[in-house]
Design a protein around this nucleic acid. Structure first.
Lengths: 194, 194
DNA sequence: ACCTGAACACCGTTCAAGT
DNA sequence: ACCTGAACACCGTTCAAGT
């Protein structure tokens, strides 16, 4: 896929990140190619290194921005409502949307599968994403009436994050969004998710 | 890592599959290299193509065997006991063992993350693995006293498979087996898993 | 400040050639 | 039947060179 329209000079870094993000969510970090990326935005692969010295730098920048944006979205949800059920509905929708959008996965979920191959800088950012999600889930769970000790709450937050990432993973690998919906229904039937 | 001991000629195909399986569980399908694989067993990369014409053929062979072996193990569990709790304990242990063993992932879980890049033959085998697991989980859930309609049972089976794969994924990507254990405890506390 | 071509050591794959 | 070296088009990275 060559570039559709010339990329304005000043936005080259942005254009690279945007293309790269879509590519990683679709095919993973390993499959990301500087040469294809360059072709997509209309420069040479050597020039990509001017903006991102190594592939690891690009991966870390992607994961960092993804985490920042995700945190902002989640923060906004809690600002809009203190209803746990409503917040979880939105959370579930967000992860579902990635599947709908070209069978993509959460950037950090798919990179997590490649964890052992990732440069340290990328790993750090992936960890941060998990922390943001689990922390937010804890706060949402705390809105629930049911009294629970802090440890159980934390465990449930970890479990929900794992369960949602897992549902996304298996739905994607079967090319079947219905699998995501089925898993989520069962999560809610058992009240793992409020 | 060069070969430790010379590989007997007749077992070359086996040696390749064994090395490749460990490599994929650790680093994924994309990161699997015919050249490194060849070095590990003491032949040239061109020779690997004699045993497996393409990388896709190797991947499909790996996933096929993995599914067959997994199915046999699960079958054996149900033959040993009709207690759902005991069967699920073993199931949870199996997926945990991969993490303990060099932070590896389920072969089909990690390949699922790379699904869009996989040759069709590999995809088919990954689907088969999911089917085997979900089918087995349905049978185990059916052992439970609680009366449930078939649809709910199937959904719960899908959910457990997704939840376990997800717990493995996030534990691996945080390099922390405790995350797996935490998620599983919450799955059981909510009775998602018997 | 931003881009380039050429080189390097990697990759999967093919193929004619060896035993 | 099983292996090989050489070639091909790919990959990330480096660097001297251009504007």
């Amino acid at each position: 896929m060559p570039q559709k329209t010339a990329v304005p000079k000043a936005d080259m870094r942005e254009a690279l990140m945007s293309e790269a993000r879509a590519a990683v969510q679709a095919h993973g970090y390993n499959a990301l190619s500087f040469r294809e990326l360059a072709k997509a935005v209309g420069i040479k692969s050597a020039s990509v290194h001017y903006h991102f010295p190594t592939k690891g730098d690009l991966g870390a920048a992607l994961a960092h921005r993804y985490t920042q944006e995700g945190a902002a979205v989640l923060e906004d949800l809690l600002a809009q409502s203190r209803d746990a059920r409503w917040c979880m509905d939105r959370y579930i929708e967000i992860f579902r949307a990635a599947l709908v959008n070209d069978n993509r996965m959460c950037l950090c979920g798919i990179m997590g599968a490649e964890y052992d191959d990732l440069p340290p800088g990328v790993r750090t950012e992936i960890d941060a994403f998990a922390q943001v999600n689990i922390g937010w889930l804890e706060r949402v769970l705390a809105l629930t009436k049911s009294k629970r000790d802090k440890t159980a709450l934390k465990e449930q937050a970890v479990a929900i994050y794992a369960a949602i990432e897992g549902a996304q993973l298996i739905a994607r690998s079967r090319g079947d969004i219905a699998a995501y919906d089925q898993a989520v229904r069962a999560y809610r039937a058992t009240r793992l998710i409020p």
